[in-house]
């Protein structure tokens, strides 16, 4: 299966959208080669602003550009965007509901060798809690292109979580990205795995493993963490009686929390959350880290079997 990193798809989508929309401007904080905003920089140098290693000022500058009618995309690593510039995102973007898009790459532990300082396991929690913020975690290149397009259409703050590692392309070109609408990737009446981002591919592999044992697990892909597709989550709980969530993020505050909150209020069923168990990552190859921190297809299978 073809693999493309979501950050690569982001860089490409920016150029495509930037061609038709002169209001789109792009800001980066000395990571243009890594976040792939360099593609936009090459094509539209006068609409690209490198702010240097100064994320707080980058986000504030984007707020000013948005206040003057531009559609700024800010990019850096997720750990610096959501973490270091949190107060700027809160005060200068989310509170005034300005039209700023934060596209943060290198999220999660698949960053690998750089280690915990560069592995964001809390960004979704930080962005999800902010009023006015939409949060996208696209699972593949096609969803990323859709998320970037949707972000341009939304008049307000949007956070897009992107990864460093290549991920399988799950959708054909006819896929329609609808914000807030979960995507059923696999039907199954015995169990439901709800996954986002990088973990969607892992969830599909887990479903294959389960099928080999005669267990039909459905896979629900949540590319929009906020606003959450409450109906799809409740329907899945009603259909299969329990839920396993899978995310490359702390189990606190992200997808697992969002699903748990929803089920607790609407249709409580047993659930388990696969993700970082309230710990930071460390240096290592992505596959080693996924193994050590319990984010493999086997870990998802084990969670399903515990609840069966």
């Amino acid at each position: 299966m073809q693999k493309i990193a979501t950050r690569e798809a982001y860089g490409k989508a920016l150029v495509e959208l930037g061609t038709g929309n002169p209001d789109i401007v792009v800001l980066d904080a000395d990571l243009a080669k890594s976040t792939r905003t360099i593609e936009f920089k090459k094509r539209f140098p006068h609409r690209f602003f490198d702010l240097g290693v100064a994320e707080a000022n980058m986000v504030g500058t984007a707020a000013g550009l948005a206040a003057a009618g531009k559609i700024p995309f800010c990019s850096t690593f997720a750990v610096f965007a959501a973490g270091r510039a949190f107060d700027q995102i809160r005060q200068s973007v989310a509170y005034p509901r300005l039209n700023v898009k934060i596209a943060a790459s290198h999220a999660g532990i698949t960053v690998g060798e750089d280690g915990a300082s560069h592995q964001s396991v809390e960004d979704v929690a930080l962005m999800r809690v902010l009023p006015n913020m939409t949060v996208f975690v696209p699972a593949d290149a096609v969803e990323t292109a859709g998320a970037v397009r949707a972000a341009v259409d939304i008049d307000g703050p949007v956070y897009i979580r992107l990864g460093r590692a290549g991920v399988p392309v799950l959708h054909g070109d006819d896929f329609k990205f609808v914000p807030g609408q979960a995507v059923t990737l696999r039907q199954g009446l015995d169990a439901t795995i709800i996954a986002s981002g990088f973990m969607v591919g892992q969830a599909l592999q887990a479903a294959d493993l389960l099928a080999a044992e005669g267990i039909e697990a459905g896979v629900l892909n949540i590319h929009t963490i906020k606003p959450l597709d409450v109906q799809a989550v409740v329907d899945a709980a009603q259909r299969t009686g329990f839920i396993v969530t899978a995310e490359e993020h702390s189990i606190i505050g992200g997808l697992g929390s969002a699903v748990a909150e929803t089920l607790a209020e609407h249709y409580p069923v047993p659930m388990l959350r696969v993700g970082l168990q309230d710990v930071f990552g460390e240096s290592g190859r992505p596959d080693e880290l996924l193994q050590k921190y319990g984010l493999t297809p086997d870990d998802i299978v084990n969670a399903v079997q515990k609840l069966l």
Binding site: A63, G64, L65, S92
Partner: peptide, 14 residues
């Protein structure tokens, strides 16, 4: 500490 950054953005937009 945040206002000057926003002002920069407005000045760039101009």
């Amino acid at each position: 500490g945040q206002g000057l950054s926003a002002a920069n953005g407005m000045a760039l937009a101009a």
